[in-house]
Simulated scan of single mutants.
Amino acid sequence: MISFEQIEFWNWWVIAVFLIGIEIFAPGAVFLWMGIAAAAVGFVLLAFPETTWQFQLLIFAVLSVVSIYVWRYLLRDRFAKPESGRVLNRRGASYVGRTFTLKEPIVDGSGLLHVDDSRWKVEGEDLPAGAKVKVTGIDGTVLKVERA
């Protein structure tokens, strides 16, 4: 049986691989950062082999907490999906706020708008073909527009 006095640098690296492996089955980046902290303790122990096991555990705990905190509160937003990712499978919602040119007029409050490779039914004030419109909302598959 291994006592705490016999912990070597490679033991921490095995723990790091184990923790990072757990991340595959329990995603959320917590075990990933704990694994990175364990690997860092292994490097510290490699550089300073006389480090006591109590200090090793302290380094591991501090690095784990700090790295998880930094990930959750500082770095996570940098890697978040762009705003358009929030409207996946809601194509019409991605057009809200954009401006387009009418190829067909809006008559009696209803018309068609050509957007990329598709046609959308639009509702808004009567406007001639060639007018610029801004999409202000969506109701099902109907885009609400106003003069831009």
Rank of each mutant, 00 (worst) to 15 (best):
Tyr73Gln: 11
Ile24Pro: 09
Phe25Val: 05
Val87Trp: 14
Asp77Lys: 15
Ala38Pro: 11
Leu57Met: 13
Asp116Ile: 00
Met34Trp: 07
Val66Phe: 06
Thr101Phe: 01
Val65Arg: 08
Lys121Ala: 08
Ile36Leu: 10
Pro105Asp: 07
Tyr69Pro: 08
Phe48Glu: 12
Gly28Leu: 11
Phe18Thr: 13
Leu46Glu: 14
Phe100Leu: 05
Ser94Thr: 10
Phe55Pro: 02
Gly109Ala: 12
Ser84Trp: 09
Arg76Leu: 09
Arg76Phe: 06
Glu104Cys: 00
Phe79Trp: 15
Val115His: 04
Ser67Ile: 01
Gly85Pro: 13
Ser110Asp: 05
Ile20Leu: 13
Leu46Ile: 00
Asn89Thr: 04
Gly92Phe: 09
Val96Arg: 05
Tyr95Lys: 07
Ser94His: 01
Asp116Val: 00
Leu63Cys: 04
Trp71Met: 12
Tyr73Phe: 15
Ser94Trp: 08
Thr101Gly: 06
Val65Ile: 08
Ile24Gly: 14
Gly111Asp: 02
Ile68Arg: 15
Arg90Pro: 00
Arg90Gly: 00
Leu45Phe: 11
Gly85Thr: 06
Leu102His: 03
Leu63Ser: 01
Phe18Pro: 03
Phe100Glu: 02
Leu58Phe: 10
Val70Lys: 03
Lys103Cys: 05
Gly109Cys: 02
Gly111Tyr: 07
Glu104Asp: 12
Ser84Ala: 13
Val44Gln: 13
Glu83Tyr: 04
Phe55Leu: 15
Glu104Trp: 01
Ser64Met: 08
Arg119Ile: 14
Arg72Tyr: 15
Ala61Met: 06
Ala29Pro: 03
Val62Ala: 00
Arg86Trp: 14
Thr101Met: 04
Val66Gly: 05
Phe55Ser: 12
Ser67Arg: 10
Val62Asn: 04
Leu32Ala: 06
Ala26Pro: 05
Asp77Glu: 14
Tyr95His: 07
Val87Ser: 11
Phe100Tyr: 10
Trp53His: 04
Gly111Ile: 12
Leu102Pro: 02
Val30Ala: 13
Gly21Leu: 02
Phe100Arg: 02
Gln56Arg: 03
Lys81Asp: 11
Pro82His: 07
Arg90Met: 09
Phe79His: 12
Val30Lys: 13
Leu102Lys: 03
Ser94Cys: 04
Pro105Asn: 07
Thr52Asn: 09
Val107Leu: 03
Pro27His: 04
Ala38Tyr: 11
Leu46Ser: 14
Ile22Ser: 09
Arg98Pro: 00
Leu46Thr: 13
Pro49Lys: 06
Phe100Val: 04
Lys103Ile: 12
Gly97Met: 07
Pro105Gln: 03
Met34Cys: 09
Asp117Phe: 06
Ala47Leu: 14
Thr99Trp: 08
Ser64Asp: 06
Ala26Asp: 09
Leu46Val: 04
Lys81Thr: 05
Tyr73Pro: 00
Arg86Ser: 14
Gly28Cys: 07
Ala26Ser: 08
Glu104Ile: 08
Ala40Tyr: 00
Trp33Thr: 05
Ala40Gly: 08
Phe18Lys: 03
Arg90Trp: 08
Ala93Pro: 01
Ile106Ser: 01
Val44Asn: 09
Leu32His: 02
Ser84Met: 13
Ile68Asn: 14
Tyr73Trp: 15
Val115Tyr: 10
Val107Asn: 05
Arg78Phe: 12
Trp71Tyr: 10
Thr99Lys: 14
Trp53Arg: 09
Leu88Asp: 00
